[in-house]
Structures are given as C-alpha cells and as structure tokens.
Nucleic acid binder design. Structure first.
Length: 476
RNA sequence: GGUGGCAUAGCCAAGUGGUAAGGCCGAGGACUGCAAAUCCUCUAUCCCCAGUUCAAAUCUGGGUGCCACCUCCA
C-alpha cells in the first residue's frame, strides 16, 4: 500500500514520495511560548506526532523539527506584565511545554530551534532578499515585495487583487503594497538586535524559513501547522524561502483543523479556551490523546466534556479486551484441539484495514475503528462456548497482543497495556493470595465470604472480575 | 466582497458510484450464585430541489444552514 496525503498546496490527495529515499523531513510550527498551550494547540502537536509515528512504523527515518517562537508582540507584552524579560518568559513556558508534551506522549523532535537564537541567519536571509530585489527598506523597516513574487497566493488559493480588496487599511505609508509583510521591524527598545538597517526585531514569518533551511536543508518533505497558518504565515514563508532559493522548498503542506467550542474556534483572543494542563488534570492523558485523534485531522473537533467522557468509556472497552489477552497469555496452555488460525486471519484482516486507513491521509478515525473490531473478534473468540487455551491459540493471542502494542501504542501513541511496576509485585502476590482464598470459599459456596473479599478489595481499589478462565483483577 | 471547508442515526464519527465502519447512550436477550466484563439482536430513505447514470451519501447544477481565513492565533 502506498501512502496518500492531502496537500494544501495542490488541494488534493497525492501519493507520498520522499525527496531522499527512506527518509522524511518534517517541520512543524510550534508554540509561541508566552503561555501554557491550549487543547487546540495540542492538536497541532499531536497530529504531526501521529504522522511521524506512522512514517517510522512504515520504516522511514524521520527528522522532525519543531520551533519555539520566542520573540513577538505577545511575548513582549506578557514579559512586560510579568516584569521579566522575554528570555525568562520563554524559559518558563518551554519547560511547561515539555511537561505537557510528555504527558501527551509526544515523541521528541530532533531539533527545537528558537527564533532568538537565529537572528544572524535571519539577517543574512533579508540581505539576500534585498540583493535579489524581493525586499526593500523603508524608514528602518524592511518589507517583502509580494508583487515581485509571481506565485504569491498559491498556497491559500487567493489572488493578490482579492487579497488587496479585503486587506485592512494600513495607516502607514511605509509599504509599497498593503500586503507586503515585515521582514525587519525597527525597534527603539529591548528586545532588539543590531542589523545593517538599524536596531530592530525580525518579522514573524522569517524564523520558519531560516530554521527549516538550517536544520532540514533547501528542500524538505512535510510542513505542518494549523489551518489558520495557511494565510498569511505559510504563504509568506513560501514567498521568502522560494524567492531566496529559487525552487520549491516544501513538497507537502499538511494543515490540521481546529478545536471548536460550541461550534466556534477556540482561541486565546476569544478567551474560549482550556489549557492542555487543565484538561489533563481532569482526564487521563491517553483519553485526551484518543479524543484528539478520533476524528480525521483536517476536520474540526468540537470540544466538550461529554465527548471526553464518551472517549474514556470507549477506551476502557479496548483496554478490557487487551487485559483479557494479557491475562490469558500468562496462563499455562492446555491440551486441546482448538486452532487459532481463524482468529489469526481476522487479526491480519484488521491490521490491513488499519494500515489502509492510515495510508489514506492518516485516517485515524477509521484506523481506530479497526482496533475496536479486532477487540470484538478477540472477545467473541475467547468467550465462545468451546474456547480453550491451546498452544495454538496462545500463540495467536501473543501475536495479537503484539499487534495492539504496535498499532495502538507505537503508532497511535495510546498506552493500552497495563504495565506492572516493580513495587507492584508484592501487591500482585497479596491480591493473588486473597483471590485464592476467595476461590476456595466460592467452591464451598460460601458466597457471603467471597463477596466480602471482593467488596473490600473494591474499597481498596482492586476490581475483581470472575470469568470462566478464573478471577481477574486490576487496580481501578 | 474574495477564498477554503463542512452538513451522515439521540450524540460523536468513517465512508467519492453498487442500497450505510466504529464508538457513546437506550431497549431486549444470552452468559453468571450475584457483580463486572463480554457476546447477540434492535434503532439512518445520508440538509433540500433538480440533473447525469442500469445504479448516487458519494458526480453535476441550484438552494439553505454552519464554520474558517483575508488582523495576532494551532
């Protein structure tokens, strides 16, 4: 199966081909580190994480860059309010970013460049653009001359004339064209850096052009970000990079949809947002993650507690099936005739469905459906009348356990298997002991005692389930 | 005004030509000493109108409604 991805640049799904065989280079627009990131931002980090995981699963060697914007108006304003400098502000929220990212089970990127560490490279790029006449100076500022760049608007599918018509009135007459955007902005106060055009700050769009080139090269495969970045951010990034390099820089532009609240975009400016850490304090991280990938990445997701609750219930169903497998796999096989071939074929079928779904523009919603179907087949099989844990069946269950691990945990990043810690060994033994006693009571039909044991274990957070294969338990 | 997108059961959500995956909730049943878990069954003429086709949720045209971008925003 070949992977197909929807490319914003062409407006269609295309077969995915790498620039360099077996390698994929990805650049993701990261956060402006002036605050904790909200659940909508989280989606923009989880989406490339899934893409990266799936590509790695398919055998590609992935290089991933995620940047931190640490200088812009929001940073300066916030730092002023806090009475600290932007460096301190950035440090604080970059630390917070990594805490939340780890909770969300985001794999580490290979590089986390910061804008302020690349000022000199940005200045070099501006010089180059000036030399090539794609930029001009105006009263200490430097602007990009969009009219000079013929392809301007190709990403957002907008005509320059239409954009001009819709452009907000620009009071300053510094620009030749209201759509020209800032490459260098004169600044009399800190933060500011020296440049051939006087002290100032870089324009926002510049950092991504500079840092993607520095860490990924003149051309790379995938660029991700939220749809709101299509225009102007990515449009301008293309203009800068391509004006400078004279060739197409990014092959595939992938944009994720928003998280909405009551049908409206979640955003800091509207004030209708929840920070990721707020959400993580209320729901297990894997539930949050599953919620974020339960819908196709380009569609909007409406955020609600109800949906998070539903997701949690659904996840428990998947986990129950896997716990059952984990339990069975640890039991001794019995002699018998039951053959696992049929179950194995079903598992293979579901895996193929999963892969086909992911190959179709990372259709996680459909892929998750395949996982649920597999769980159902397993439940059906192990709960059937003639079920017996023969060696053949056990082998297939081990394979299915592995499959859930690969697809659910490695690709989707959702922890599905209960992992026993070292200090839980004693707990294990003690609970097993009590369950042995309870089993004896049950055999003697002393149900009152049996129930008492179960109830009191329940009070202690140990849930007991009686199944035809024996009593199972887990910590609730 | 320009541009892009969306409209599928009570809710969430897949599905680009051959009479609708999956999840949540609900009803009934099976299993069970009781629970829990699980399984089975039931619940959709796919926003409206017209057209193309042997055949349309899926293509075309026209409506209606909603969202987003054009200003910082994932």
């Amino acid at each position: 199966m070949t992977l197909r991805v929807y490319n914003t640049l062409t407006g269609s799904k295309e077969e995915f081909e790498t620039i360099e065989e077996g390698k994929v280079k990805i650049y993701s627009c990261g956060p402006t580190v002036y605050d904790y990131f909200h659940i909508g931002n989280a989606r923009a980090f989880v989406v490339p994480d899934i893409i990266k995981r799936y590509l790695e699963y398919k055998g590609y060697q992935v290089t991933h860059v995620l940047n931190f914007t640490d200088v812009d108006d929001k940073m300066i304003k916030r730092a002023d309010e806090e009475g600290i400098n932007i460096q301190q502000l950035a440090d604080r929220f970059i630390t917070a970013f990594f805490e939340d990212a780890q909770a969300l089970n985001l794999k580490k990127a290979d590089f986390y460049p910061q804008a302020t560490e690349h000022i000199s490279e940005m200045i070099e790029l501006i010089k180059d653009l000036l030399t090539k006449d794609y930029a001009y100076q105006s009263e200490g500022d430097v602007y990009f001359r969009i009219e000079k760049f013929d392809d301007y608007g190709k990403l957002s599918k907008q005509k320059v004339e239409d954009l001009e018509a819709g452009a907000r009135v620009d009071v300053s007459n510094k620009k030749e064209n209201p759509l020209d955007f800032t490459l260098w902005k004169r600044a009399s106060e800190e933060p500011r850096w020296d440049s051939p055009w006087g002290a100032g700050r870089p324009g926002w769009h510049l950092e991504c052009s500079v840092m993607s080139r520095k860490y990924l090269g003149d051309r790379f495969d995938i660029h991700t970000g939220g749809v709101d970045l299509v225009f102007p951010h990515h449009e301008n990034e293309i203009a800068q990079s391509e004006a400078c390099c004279g060739q197409q820089v990014v092959n595939y532009w992938l944009h994720n949809g928003y998280i909405n609240i009551d049908g409206e975009k979640m955003s800091k400016s509207l004030g209708n947002f929840f920070t990721t850490r707020e959400i993580l304090s209320k729901y297990p991280a894997k539930v949050v993650r599953l919620f974020l990938i339960a819908k196709h990445y380009r569609s909007p997701i409406n955020f609600s507690d109800q949906e998070l609750e539903n997701t949690a219930t659904g996840l428990a169903r998947l986990e129950n099936a896997i716990e059952k497998i984990n339990y069975l796999v640890e039991q001794e096989a019995v002699a018998g005739q039951l053959d696992g071939t049929e179950l194995k074929e079903l598992a293979t079928e579901k895996k193929e469905k999963f892969m086909a779904a992911m190959d179709d523009d990372f259709n996680t919603a459909l892929a998750i459906g395949a996982l649920y179907e597999l769980a159902k087949e397993v439940n059906r099989f192990v709960n059937s009348e003639d079920f017996e844990l023969t060696q053949s069946v056990k082998e297939v269950l081990v394979e299915i356990e592995q499959l859930f691990k690969e697809l659910g945990e490695d690709v989707l990043g959702i922890e599905l298997t209960a992992e026993a810690g070292k200090d839980e060994q004693l707990v294990d033994s003690l609970v097993e002991l009590l369950l042995d006693v309870r089993e004896e009571a049950r055999e003697k039909q002393e149900y009152q005692l049996a129930d008492q044991i179960r109830d009191r274990l329940s009070e202690l957070g140990v849930e007991v389930k009686d199944t035809p294969q024996g009593s199972q338990w887990k910590l609730s």
